[in-house]
Design a protein around this nucleic acid. Structure first.
Lengths: 232, 232
DNA sequence: GACACAAGTTGAACACGTTCAAGAAGGGCG
DNA sequence: CGCCCTTCTTGAACGTGTTCAACTTGTGTC
């Protein structure tokens, strides 16, 4: 409770066209440098210099270096949705839709694997507004959960009615797990993460199907009760 | 690959009694200040000053501020084992043993909850030697996995023979999940984490039991295959 | 056009983690 | 004791993220 310097200033959106332009310039420069040199080796001074502004100016738009990461999240989320569109349009099988959306997410992240690890570090901080569980990330998180709601809604899958409302969030949580594995994945091209998706999706599919069986009802109940307890 | 300044110098053990004494002095001071002010607000200068040594001296024993955290891990691991001893001696039911060991782990960590969050941040960095999955953490990790092997071995549980050799590591992984939840747990006294343990243990117990059923053999196989694929 | 106020911009200054060249302490050996 | 070598210790200096008081630019109002 007594901990953390966690940047608080949300550093409001620019109010003028000039401001918006500068903001974009800084973001674009930062993203380029992150990709070129990695997060740790990209200094705020370098970003400012390459963008042709003063250091303090960057802090006018972004409360901290970490806040630049949030921009990365937002962009990735939008790209993810776009990349998932074709599969969601084409397939109606639950497993196929889920696998498609998961692969789309990793597709979008792959070019950033080298520096995404550093991002992850700050994202993992529970008190950080950058945490995927934080209030500040509520927007992107809800969007992401919505994506998995779509996976479910557009599918022919039959799901236990008690489980159904919780499933999108659970799938998102599973996706967070996949991303966690991906961040740690040192195999070439993160091939193992692909195998994780292909291996885990059928299991999830089977599990979701089994949830309707009378025999497993008590277990399903037990799981749901636990989830409800753990929710905020 | 091109990323990260990750501290490399293992900063060898002291070779003399004088060195050992100084090292202990620095660790003790650091742990006290971490507890008092939190990790972020404890500066290396403050640690050095309170310990009555020069800043550079701390760096002679610890490659970085983060390396002081590793000391915390090591201590916690030893305490965990000690705290788990009574339960392991008393119980022979798998679920009771598992719950006991998990609760013991959280018992040990609880006094440090306020600043453990900051620790977690650096631990989460995949390239960091402080990561629980890193080579440098191999020692404490193996010790922890060994603890869960003991949970299993000393129990009357009957387990699918194919699953059995993998189970200690899987239980450790589950424990990491519990710790992850605990770090994020903002409920008073982290009561929710306790409920997570009490709720999840029976499920794990049931699942482990079910793994022997003929009907579920294919699923068990599928899971094991996936695990093998994902292993290094 | 002149004024006022908000929006945007600047760069020097600060605190921090970390490095390193220089030196002090200690101990074994003649 | 005098010498040498390892171990330990020092604190000034560097690069970094971040702050902030001062300044400049833009925009609406009369």
């Amino acid at each position: 409770m007594t901990e953390q310097t966690a940047p608080t200033t949300a550093a409001g959106e620019p109010a003028t066209a000039r401001g918006e332009q500068t903001r974009q310039l800084i973001v674009d420069t930062a993203m380029r440098l992150f990709r070129e040199r990695g997060y740790a080796r990209t200094t705020m001074r370098a970003i400012a210099q390459e963008a042709g502004v003063a250091v303090g100016n960057a802090y006018y738009y972004f409360g901290s270096k970490e806040h630049l990461i949030q921009e990365f999240y937002a962009r990735s989320q939008v790209e993810h949705r776009a990349a998932a569109e074709p599969v969601l349009h084409r397939e109606d099988d639950f497993a196929a839709r889920l696998a498609g959306v998961l692969h789309a997410g990793i597709d979008v992240l792959t070019p950033s694997h080298s520096f995404a690890a550093s991002f992850f570090k700050t994202a993992a901080e529970p008190t950080s507004p950058l945490s995927p569980f934080s209030a500040e990330s509520s927007g992107p998180r809800q969007a992401a959960i919505g994506l998995f709601a779509e996976v479910l809604d557009g599918s022919t899958a039959r799901v236990d009615p008690e489980l159904r409302p919780h499933l999108p969030e659970l799938l998102w949580l599973a996706y967070m797990g996949v991303v966690l594995y991906w961040v740690y994945d040192r195999s070439p091209g993160q091939a193992r993460t692909r195998k994780l998706i292909d291996g885990a999706v059928p299991l999830v599919d089977r599990l979701v199907g089994l949830s309707r069986l009378r025999v497993l009802r008590p277990v399903t109940r037990q799981v749901l009760d636990l989830i409800r307890t753990l929710r905020h």
